[in-house]
Write a protein that binds this DNA or RNA. Structure first.
Lengths: 226, 226
DNA sequence: TGGAGATAAAATGTCAACAATAACTAAAGA
DNA sequence: TCTTTAGTTATTGTTGACATTTTATCTCCA
């Protein structure tokens, strides 16, 4: 009998890192809650050594904050920090879009079209809600960043910022923001990429994320009012 | 007698992290070289436990790469990766500049002016060389990112990308790139910030970094020719 | 009743030893 | 001479125990 279903050639610290990360991003570990080492090491059945290494990796992803002699806490993003992330995404995905427009081949554009078509199908059969709830929105952004062919940019966005975004959405249990409008903007962006118009693609993507940020801000303001 | 000159309320792993990071960035630990745990733990007089945590933090900063069961290696940036960093810097410092233009107060602009005046003085008394060799260039970019008031952006640039940039400069022992021209561009950028013209400030900064990237690329091409 | 201080419990930081894997060395065969 | 293979060495991965610090609890006193 094999050791496990799918665990080989990887270290304990890395495996537990993955598990804790998804636990954080999916809200299983509440934002702001303490990361208790003895408790977690017991839960995952490992020693504190590799666990601490995993926590240090989580710190690198900005998913936990460590205070010396006090311990790690799951990050809790406030309104300002969420906006900061949008500001960074706007810049990074803007350049990702520009690069994608210059570097994407015809087959890449086909994939983008197919992705959008698939999403459109889901929207029509679902009244437009599930698309953005089920991270279909991120799928689109994911693919564009991939097409930028900038590995570091990909790791930054897909390995760090998107996780934080998901954490925030889960934390505030926020509803999908303006799905129909966003979907139209996605189409415009693909148009620009297909035309290899890097400048326009960058502009559209920056505007796309900027609008999402503004929608979030106004939504947050509304919550404060209530 | 005190324990040490300046070491308290911090953990061993964090202290060693700082030491190794500077050792890497300053070229003391050669790019591509192996990070030997027994050797380093002996050198710094600590156990392998905290050392491994420090290495994991270094991995988070992208300064080392860890392979399971093999160990960590100091990153060695190739030409493509250096360009990737420039592409990211262009986007991030662009938005940093835009934010700085909208958020910087009069006293902040005064600080920028003083910094440039100080640099100008150094240039005149030094024939323009030391300014950019001694990271005076980074001082300028540092301050602007601070003025953006985006903490995450600051940590990203100043806590990660600038270190990688220094590593690459040290690795290729590259000379300062076009100091006089860059200095003029710095002045233009401050002008835009002082006028609270965010759009222009972003444009100028992006162009500034874009030119630096192009200079680097042509310089690298020249090396290939020889 | 409320707070200050002492005590106890728990958590974090650190270390040294053991296990498992990879890297190196040397011998044997073609 | 080169390649393969076995054995040895070194390094990484993991664990449990100990030290130190923080946090919680309890007592005492105003």
């Amino acid at each position: 009998m094999d050791d496990k279903v799918l665990s080989k050639s990887s270290t304990l610290a890395d495996e537990v890192f993955d598990q804790i990360r998804t636990a954080i991003v999916e809200g299983e570990l509440a934002p702001g809650s303490k990361v208790n080492e003895p408790q977690l090491s017991k839960h995952y059945g490992i020693s504190r050594g590799p666990l601490r290494e995993a926590i240090r990796r989580l710190e690198g992803c900005k998913l936990v904050e460590i205070k010396p002699n006090v311990g790690a806490k799951v990050v809790s993003l406030n309104r300002e920090q969420a906006i900061e992330i949008y500001e960074i995404r706007e810049a990074l995905e803007g350049v990702a879009c520009r690069l994608a427009a210059t570097r994407a081949g015809t087959e890449d554009c086909t994939r983008l079209r197919e992705l959008l078509a698939h999403h459109e199908q889901q929207i029509q059969s679902d009244n437009g809600r599930r698309y953005f709830q089920k991270e279909g929105d991120l799928d689109f952004h994911y693919l564009i960043v991939q097409l930028s062919s900038n590995t570091r940019l990909f790791n930054l966005l897909c390995g760090e910022l998107y996780h934080l975004q998901r954490l925030y959405r889960c934390q505030t249990s926020s509803e999908p923001l303006r799905p129909e409008q966003a979907f139209k903007e996605h189409h415009q962006i693909v148009d620009a990429i297909e035309n290899h118009d890097g400048e326009l693609a960058e502009l559209l993507m920056k505007r796309h994320i900027s609008r999402a940020r503004e929608t979030l801000v106004s939504q947050l303001n509304q919550i404060v009012m209530n």
